[in-house]
Amino acid sequence: MLRKIIATSTAALALTASAALAQSENPMVGGAPMFADKTIVENAVNSADHTTLVAAVQAAGLVETLSGPGPFTVFAPTNAAFEKLQAGTVENLLKPENKEMLTKVLTCHVVSADAMSDAIKGMIDDDGGTHPVPTVGGCTLQATYDGDEIMLTDERGRTANVTIADVDQSNGVIHVIDEVLLPAM
């Protein structure tokens, strides 16, 4: 009986350690753990740094899409990135009559692929230092890197830095960025 209890306890401990190890591979984002077995939306709603992005995704009706199978790479601007926009821009985009423009802005942060930072750097190297990144919103971002930091430049010449890379999701990957990327208007 004692052996059975020890074997059961050992198995439970191994499972707990395995789950902790799997979770520890992902960085914390916005003070919250990010779980590789959850979707982009399931993880994003827990990040204190992405409440504006989550509200925008909800207003644009993209929750179901970004909860789908993907794969997606999402360049996720923080609340601070949204605050850098001209005063009133976010509030204006969140109005129902501006849903089409909001959707365009958000989908210019999404790529139909699961692209971890090493893969992005490899594509940049293959293309001689700059790699065009077509988004599902029809925008083309220009990816570059310096050391470990990946940068994305939008069609207006604004550059966002990836501040937290490789946040693995069940349906893709999130890279946290410090600017909102905008389409050419």
Rank of each mutant, 00 (worst) to 15 (best):
T78A: 06
I164V: 14
D125S: 10
L15Y: 01
D154N: 11
D146P: 07
N161F: 11
G88E: 12
I124M: 03
A76W: 01
E64L: 01
E149K: 14
L15G: 04
K95Y: 01
G137T: 13
E97W: 01
L85H: 11
T140K: 08
I164T: 15
T51L: 07
P71V: 14
V133M: 06
T159G: 10
A36Q: 10
V111A: 07
K121N: 04
G137I: 14
A48S: 15
M151R: 14
T10Q: 02
S24K: 10
G61N: 07
T39K: 05
F82H: 04
E91Q: 14
N98V: 02
F82M: 03
A184T: 08
T52L: 05
Q169A: 14
I6P: 00
T89G: 11
A143M: 09
N92S: 15
H175F: 02
N171A: 00
G128N: 10
R3S: 03
G147V: 09
T140Y: 02
T78Q: 00
V111H: 05
T103A: 13
C108A: 03
A113W: 05
V63N: 03
V162R: 07
G138D: 00
N161E: 11
A11M: 06
I164F: 04
V105K: 07
T163F: 03
R156H: 07
S9T: 06
L15Q: 04
D154S: 08
L182G: 09
D148S: 15
G61F: 01
D49M: 11
D126I: 08
T140L: 03
A165M: 12
A22K: 10
V63E: 04
A32C: 05
V41G: 06
V111D: 03
V133D: 08
A7R: 00
I164P: 09
D146W: 09
G147K: 04
E149V: 15
V167S: 09
D114L: 11
A165V: 12
I164K: 13
R156G: 12
H175C: 00
Y145C: 11
R156Q: 14
H131L: 13
M123N: 13
L21H: 15
L15C: 12
T8S: 00
E100N: 15
L141R: 13
C139P: 02
A56W: 04
K99H: 03
V74K: 06
N171L: 06
A113V: 08
D114R: 14
D118S: 15
A143Y: 09
V173M: 10
V167P: 07
D118R: 13
T8E: 00
